[in-house]
Lab assay of single mutants.
Amino acid sequence: TEYKLVVVGAGGVGKSALTIQLIQNHFVDEYDPTIEDSYRKQVVIDGETCLLDILDTAGQEEYSAMRDQYMRTGEGFLCVFAINNTKSFEDIHQYREQIKRVKDSDDVPMVLVGNKCDLAARTVESRQAQDLARSYGIPYIETSAKTRQGVEDAFYTLVREIRQH
C-alpha cells in the first residue's frame, strides 16, 4: 500500500529536517529553504509493509500558489509548527483551512506536530497545542528532528489516521 503524505507549515519550522531524519536517519543542521522535494521510503507499520511517498513543501509565502496542487494529491498532512515560534503555531489554522477548502472536506487525515521540542526556549505550551488538536479532532505529537524523538511516531500516526479514514 502506498501513502501520499504531505508536510506543511511555516518556513523554518523543520519540515525538511523531520523528513530527512525519518528517511535518512540524520539531522540536517543548516537551513536551506525548500521549494519542493519528495522522498520515498518502505516501512512496516503495524505489520503492514507500506511505501511512504512524502512531499516536503515550501513554507515560504512566495510558493503558496503551489499549495493547491499538492493538497489535492496528498492523502494525509503533517501540519508542523516549531514550539519556539508562536507565529508558526498561529499559521497552522490557515494551512488547515486551505487543506479543507482544496479537499472540499472537513475530515482530512492530519496530525499536528510541534517540532524542536529539544529546545528550552518554548513559547507554545503543550497544552495550547493539545487544545488546538482536540478542537480539530486530530492527534498532537511533539518531535525533535535533532534527537529523533517522536519522528517515526508522527509519520506513522498519520498513516494510521489515513487507514482509519
Rank of each mutant, 00 (worst) to 15 (best):
R134F: 05
P139R: 06
A10W: 09
Y63I: 09
R67H: 00
I92R: 01
R96V: 15
E152K: 07
S144N: 12
T1H: 08
I35V: 08
A133F: 04
R122C: 13
Q164I: 07
E62Q: 14
Q21R: 09
I45R: 08
T1S: 13
A145D: 02
D118Y: 00
E61D: 14
S38M: 02
A133R: 05
F77Y: 14
R101C: 05
V8M: 02
C50G: 10
E97C: 13
V111I: 04
R160Y: 12
G12S: 12
T147S: 09
V124M: 11
R67E: 08
H26V: 09
E97Y: 07
I54Q: 01
Q69Y: 09
Y39M: 02
V13S: 12
P109Q: 02
L132R: 05
E48N: 06
V159K: 02
R163G: 08
V28S: 13
L22E: 13
L112D: 00
D53C: 06
L5V: 08
E62T: 04
Q24R: 04
E62N: 15
A65Y: 15
D106N: 13
A10K: 13
T57G: 02
Y3S: 07
G9D: 04
C50Q: 05
Q164C: 05
L52M: 13
M110C: 01
K15W: 06
N115M: 13
Q98Y: 15
D32P: 03
P139K: 05
V43E: 06
S105T: 12
A133L: 04
M110S: 02
L51Q: 13
M66Q: 04
L55C: 08
Y39D: 02
A17P: 04
H165I: 15
I99E: 02
H165D: 14
D53N: 00
Q130A: 05
C79D: 00
G47D: 07
S16H: 00
L119P: 09
K41I: 11
D107K: 15
Y156A: 14
D46C: 06
N84L: 07
V111M: 03
R160A: 14
S88V: 07
L18F: 15
Q164F: 09
N25F: 08
I23T: 13
T34H: 02
E97M: 12
E142W: 13
V102G: 04
E75A: 05
E75Y: 13
G12F: 11
K41F: 05
D107W: 10
S38G: 11
N25D: 14
T123W: 04
I83N: 05
L78F: 13
D68Q: 07
G14Q: 01
P33T: 06
I141S: 05
R96L: 10
S144A: 08
Y63C: 15
L52G: 03
I162E: 01
T147Q: 10
D56W: 07
R127C: 12
R67C: 08
A10P: 10
E61L: 12
A17C: 06
V80S: 04
Q21M: 12
T34Q: 03
A10E: 04
D91H: 10
Y31R: 03
V159D: 01
C79Q: 01
T57Q: 01
V102P: 03
I45S: 11
T86M: 15
L5D: 00
G114Q: 03
G9C: 02
I23G: 15
Y63N: 15
P33G: 03
T143F: 02
V111H: 00
G47L: 06
T57V: 03
C79M: 15
L158Q: 06
F81N: 02
S135Q: 12
D153A: 07
I92M: 03
I138H: 02
E75R: 04
L51A: 12
N115K: 13
T147D: 14
E48W: 05
A129Y: 08
E90L: 14
G47R: 07
Q128C: 11
V43L: 09
D153K: 11
V43P: 06
H26S: 13
L78N: 01
V108N: 13
M71W: 09
K87C: 04
M71D: 13
T1Q: 07
Y136T: 05
V124R: 08
G59M: 05
G12I: 15
K4F: 07
T143Q: 06
K116C: 15
T49E: 07
G150R: 06
Y70N: 02
R40S: 10
V28A: 07
L5T: 08
L119F: 08
S126Q: 04
T157P: 04
R127W: 08
Y63M: 10
T147M: 09
C117Y: 09
T73D: 12
Y136N: 02
Q42V: 09
Q149N: 06
L18R: 02
Y156F: 03
R40Q: 05
P109S: 03
A17V: 07
A82S: 14
K146L: 14
R40P: 02
I138G: 02
Y70T: 03
Q21L: 06
D56F: 00
E152C: 10
S135I: 14
E125K: 09
Q42M: 08
Q128I: 12
R96I: 07
F77N: 00
T34S: 06
T143D: 00
Y70M: 15
L119N: 15
Y70C: 11
A121T: 13
V151Y: 13
V7K: 06
R148C: 11
G74Q: 05
E161K: 15
Y156R: 14
Q24I: 15
V44M: 08
L18T: 04
N115P: 01
Q130Y: 07
V8Q: 02
D32R: 03
E161Q: 08
L112S: 00
G74A: 04
F81W: 10
V151H: 15
A121I: 15
E36Q: 04
D131L: 09
I45Y: 07
D37C: 04
I35H: 06
T1V: 06
V113D: 00
I162D: 02
V7T: 09
T1Y: 10
M71T: 08
S64W: 14
Y31A: 05
A129T: 03
N115L: 15
Q128K: 08
D46M: 09
